[in-house]
Amino acid sequence: MPQDTLNQDFATILVFLVFGALFVIANMVLVGRLIRSKTKYTEGKSTVYECGEPTFGSAFVRFDIRFYVLAVVFAIFDVEVVFLFPWAAVMKSLGPVAWLEAAAFVGVLGVGLAYIWRKGDIDWIPAHGHTRQAGKTLPGELTTVPTDGVPAATIPAIATPAVAEAR
C-alpha cells in the first residue's frame, strides 16, 4: 500500500478518536449539565463510599502489590509478541529457517518463564523471592503462638503500617 494511503487510514483513525472524545465529553459534561436539576452539595457526598462504615486513613498508602514481578515479565513478553507479528506474516514464504529462529527466540523467553515459575513469582505468596518451604515461616507471619492457643500458621498477618498510623 502506498505511503499516502496508509497515512490517510491512520488519519481516519484520528478522526474516529476525535469523534470518540467529543462523544464522551458531550455525554459526561454537557448534556447532563443542561438537563439535570440543581442539587445541594453536602459534606456526606464527598466521603469515601465504604458501605456506610466511617473510613479511616487515605487509600494513597504503600500497598502490597502482588505479582509485581509479572509486570516486568509482561513487558518482555509483550515486546516478544510484537516482534512475532511481522514474523507470522512472512512465515509461509521463509519456511523451516524462520521456524527455527523463532523457536530459539521464544525458547529463551520460555526459559525465563520457567525460571519465574520455579522461583514462585506466579504463586500467591512470593515473599522476597523465595518459594514457600515446609516448616519455614515467611516475613510478616506470626511465629509465636498467641495467648488464646490458636496455632500460629492459621493466622495471617493483618496489621499494616497504614492502619497502625491511622489509629
Binding site: V48, E50, A59, A71, D78, V81
Partner: peptide, 21 residues
C-alpha cells in the same frame, strides 16, 4: 482514593496485562 477501588485497580492491572499476552 478508596480502598475497594484501589484493590480493584490492582487486580485489574495484573489481570489485563497477563491475559493480553
Amino acid at each position: 482514593n478508596s480502598k475497594y477501588a484501589l484493590i480493584g485497580a490492582v487486580r485489574a492491572s495484573a489481570q489485563l496485562i497477563s491475559y493480553e499476552i
